[in-house]
């Protein structure tokens, strides 16, 4: 049942038009951060207001909505955002990746390959990949316009000389279609290869920082690296304790006081459907 006190999907139509125009620009210039007049939402900045505004602007009454946080549908903030849209837009909600037409995510890309009939909406805390190298927006904007990305390479190379490896393990910067360096949001670098050549539309919303950016389907997305230090999307070298999956991203769970731990899929829907299909990990009952 929709809450009649608010417009469909909460935002007023003028705000949605403004966001929709920004989305179209984002799709036309992949990887470029389009400024938009982000609104105060009824949830705090930093808790997905950008993603929520993008989802609200693209949502139709026919959609089926899924929200994940850390890959899981049942984390509290995912639950909260899902119920927000159930209440304000009356849309169907699902936890199954394959059933969803819009998936809002924080920090993960689902394990199952996405399709052309899906939209993936990312919640982005700091959209500017150069921000930790240069805190000033006026400077980083100039760097993007001049394609001046040397500083980023220097930073990655300093990692290598200090640690022997690039010491960035999430929010790993990518280059889009050979032009813009983009922050893929704090997804683990394990997920980076799924960004490129993806059949789904990927939209990124940063509410507090007032930026929207996008990757159209089948866009070329390359994780920054060096010839002698190629990008390595590695993950924990274990199989999921519950479903036995060997190539999914894993959470490490501490199970007792003696330091006992197990590894389980971070994508709860992926893990559940594997278990339903009869797959069993070593820790499964």
């Amino acid at each position: 049942m929709t809450d009649q006190a608010y417009n469909f999907a909460y935002l007023d139509e003028q705000t949605k038009r403004m966001i929709r125009r920004a989305i179209l620009k984002g799709l036309a210039v992949p990887g470029y951060q389009v400024p938009f007049a982000s609104r105060e939402m009824p949830m705090p900045y930093g808790w997905g207001t950008g993603g929520v505004q993008v989802s609200a602007a693209v949502m139709t009454t026919d959609d089926c909505f899924k929200v994940i946080d850390q890959g899981a549908d049942d984390t509290t903030n995912a639950v909260s955002i899902r119920s927000f849209f159930k209440r304000t837009a009356g849309v169907k909600a699902t936890t199954r990746t394959a059933e969803a037409s819009i998936i809002q995510t924080r920090h993960r890309i689902p394990e199952d390959a996405l399709t052309e009939s899906q939209i993936l909406v990312y919640q982005v805390p700091i959209p500017e990949p150069l921000r930790f190298l240069e805190p000033r927006e006026s400077e980083t904007r100039k760097m993007h316009s001049l394609e001046e990305y040397g500083l980023m390479h220097v930073k990655l190379y300093e990692d290598i000389s200090r640690h022997g490896h690039i010491a960035t393990s999430y929010a790993y910067p990518v280059k889009v279609e050979g032009r813009y360096v983009m922050d893929p949001s704090p997804i683990p670098k394990f997920d980076n290869p799924k960004l490129g050549d993806c059949p789904a539309i990927q939209l990124f919303g940063a509410g507090r920082e007032q930026r929207i950016y996008a990757l159209p389907p089948y866009t070329q997305v390359i994780s920054l690296d060096f010839e002698d230090h190629p990008f390595d999307p590695s993950k924990a070298d274990h199989a999921c304790g519950l479903c036995g999956a060997e190539h999914s991203y894993l959470d490490e769970v501490i199970i007792d006081d003696a330091g006992g731990r197990m590894f389980v899929c971070s994508d709860t829907d992926f893990c559940r459907s594997r278990q339903e299909d009869g797959h069993k990990g070593k820790d499964a009952a």
Binding site: W47, D69, Q70, G71, T75, N77, R106, H107, R108, S169, Y170, A171, P186, I187, P188, K189, F190, K235, A236, Y249, L250, D251, E252, S266
Partner: peptide, 9 residues
């Protein structure tokens, strides 16, 4: 909010 995915990496 949970950040365990990033922390894991």
């Amino acid at each position: 909010l949970p950040h365990y995915v990033d922390f894991q990496s």
